[in-house]
Design a binder for these strands. Structure first.
Length: 582
DNA sequence: TATGTCTGCCC
DNA sequence: ATTCTGC
DNA sequence: GCAGAATGGGCAGACATA
């Protein structure tokens, strides 16, 4: 297949929002492709040249692509940047600048070039990547250039994700979605949809059924939905299990004798980062072949208090691993068992898996079973939730008692309840809008995609940034924000604004919005409370609540001092004694 | 050698 | 991570 | 309710450059 033809399919996909139509187009694409192209097309649809768990990245994004485009079309970087700001899509910038070509490349040829770009590393590799992409774009038609750029950005924006591909694969072979279940199962246990598609194409459903769970190969992780109260959870699940939720990182552990692998939520192999966990696993898991999951969180070995996420995340590293392991040791709180000695446990109901899990863990000081209660009473659930909060945890996860382990999907079998979802418990901040950023993709047409907001420092009589926010408002509200803010836009940063971040458009500090966040964190970029070399403060997971607050003026917003107070308070509330351990 | 820019991956 | 939107 | 596409803070590491 020519890349031009693939691009035509992409164009058709982009032109509809109807999921059934998309499925038919995708199926058509798969049927017209050669067998050896199918897996590669699927990787490209995901913005990659390999399955996600392989460490093969382009190492190229916005800035470097801009350089490639400038080079390919003999424009200045500033020209490209300006077009990008206007259009909101680098692919469309390329499309606009490119000229029709007589010749075209095969899909496999383009794939090879992209693969080579991903392989480049070491001294001079940045320049080499930029050049290689520049040459590729020069060889391609406008439409093909657009999609190549978007593939590298990992934002094809076709409305196609893995579930759509699975439906389409089934539809391509059978004319309905009935084979999806087999495709999905194979995908869940191999985490490589390109490979699954190829096996399916070559050997049909029978070949898919032969795919087995392999210890050492990551299984796609189950994810939790959200609700905002104990009542809603009980209403949804009835009698359910309730476990604490830790603010660390998800670990899927594979043990094959003394061979251990630890995968991240996105199925990256992070084993080498956690020698302490590996030791613990060897000592505390008796069975030969096991796959289980938990949350790893660092703690202060002197006081046994859990550390905040910002500490734990420092354990995600390549160098100085042993040093950091002694400073920030990890505990692994395990909550699910997927596989034991040849037996796939994922179809078993939660409680059965839980029982089995309890049998394979030997008590020790690294691995702990998560505590849990079983209840159908919202009051009890709420009490457990509050207990978790007092212990400095993130909240709880409620689980449907009879649900299998549903790999790869986010659904209501698991429901998380976090402190910040309960507005009476969470910190909201009133902040003043200091500027805005142009939107990308769907947001480009609004000319706004995010706000820069700040709080007030009365001592210096100035506003200091505390967050960028791109979530919360509806499309209608974004349009209104744009209109209202354009009326007070200013050419330069106002003198009473302190910011290291430069928005696309500065505005006079006037309008107030209410911001909800999960936490206040120390920030290297936001200027709120920043003093010389000292770090400032920022909001974790900020979102806009409602619209502009007409009842408040800029001077009425939350002050820097109040933010610092809130930061101290949130630290005090965490009086962890690790009493959730069994 | 030190610093700055960019990217990828945690949440 | 959170949130919004079309189906 | 699902699936997809917008968007956040902040860490380490790879390269480039001063």
């Amino acid at each position: 297949m020519l890349f031009k033809d693939l691009s035509m399919f992409f164009k058709r996909l982009e032109s509809t929002t109807k999921r059934n139509e998309m499925m038919v187009i995708l199926a058509d694409l798969f049927n017209k492709a050669k067998v050896e192209e199918i897996d590669k097309i699927i990787y490209l649809l995901d913005g990659r040249v390999a399955p996600p768990y392989e460490k093969l990245e382009f190492g190229m994004s916005e800035k470097l692509i801009i350089r490639s485009l400038a080079q390919a079309f003999l424009k200045s970087i500033l020209d490209i940047e300006n077009m990008y700001k206007e259009i909101g899509d680098l692919g469309e910038v390329a499309e606009k600048l490119a000229e029709e070509k007589e010749e075209d490349m095969e899909v496999l040829e383009v794939f090879k070039v992209l693969y080579d770009i991903a392989l480049l590393s070491g001294e001079g590799s940045v320049e080499a990547k930029v050049n290689k992409l520049g040459y590729l774009i020069r060889a391609l038609s406008p439409l093909s250039s657009k999609y190549v750029v978007r593939i590298i950005l990992g934002r094809l924006r076709l409305g196609v994700g893995e579930p759509s591909i699975m439906d389409a694969l089934s539809y391509a072979k059978k004319g309905d979605k009935n084979l999806r279940q087999y495709i999905e199962r194979a995908f869940n246990i191999t985490s490589d949809l390109g490979y699954v598609a190829k096996v399916f194409w070559e050997g049909g459903v029978d070949a898919l059924k032969k795919i087995k769970v392999e210890v050492g190969r990551p299984i796609r992780m189950a994810l939790a939905e959200r609700l905002s109260s104990a009542e809603e959870i009980i209403k949804k699940l009835g009698k359910c299990s309730v476990e604490p939720k830790f603010d660390g990182f998800r670990c899927q552990v594979h043990k094959n004798g003394t061979e251990i692998k630890i995968f991240s939520r996105n199925l990256e192999d992070n084993t080498h980062m956690f020698p302490d966990l590996v030791q613990g696993i060897i000592q505390q898991v008796s069975n030969e072949k096991v796959i289980f999951e938990g949350e790893a969180i660092s703690y202060n070995p002197e006081t046994n208090e859990f550390y905040p996420f910002q500490m734990t995340v420092q354990r995600k590293r390549k160098y100085d691993i042993d040093k950091m392991a002694s400073m920030f040791p990890l505990k692994l709180f395990v909550f699910d068992l997927l596989y034991v000695d040849g037996e796939d446990l994922t179809p078993l109901p939660y409680l059965r898996r839980r029982e089995r899990l309890e049998k394979i863990i030997i008590p020790g000081d690294t691995i702990f079973l998560t505590n849990y209660i079983i209840t159908n009473n919202p009051v009890e659930l709420q009490a457990f939730f509050e207990e978790c909060i007092t212990e400095g945890l993130e909240g709880i996860v409620a689980k449907r008692l009879d649900a299998p382990y549903q790999a790869g999907v986010r659904n209501f079998n698991w429901i998380k309840l976090k402190r910040s979802y309960q507005s009476q418990l969470s910190d909201t901040v009133d902040a003043v809008i200091l500027g805005y950023f142009k939107g990308r993709g769907q947001r480009a047409k609004f000319g706004i995609g995010a706000l820069l907001v700040g709080v007030y420092n009365p001592d210096e009589d100035r506003y200091e940034t505390i967050a960028k926010i791109g979530t919360g408002p509806t499309e209608e509200e974004w349009v209104k924000f744009r209109e209202i803010l354009d009326e007070i836009k200013v050419e330069e940063k106002p003198h009473n604004v302190e910011s290291q971040i430069i928005p696309d458009v500065w505005v006079y500090p006037k309008y107030v919005v209410e911001i909800q966040a999960d936490e206040i964190t120390k920030s290297p970029v936001h200027t709120c409370g920043k003093n010389g070399e000292k770090l400032g403060y920022a909001l974790r997971f900020p979102r806009v609540i409602g619209f502009i607050r007409e009842d408040k003026s800029a001077k009425d917003v939350t002050t820097v001092k109040e933010i610092i107070e809130m930061y101290k308070l949130q630290k005090k509330e965490i009086i962890s004694d690790n009493s959730v351990e069994k």
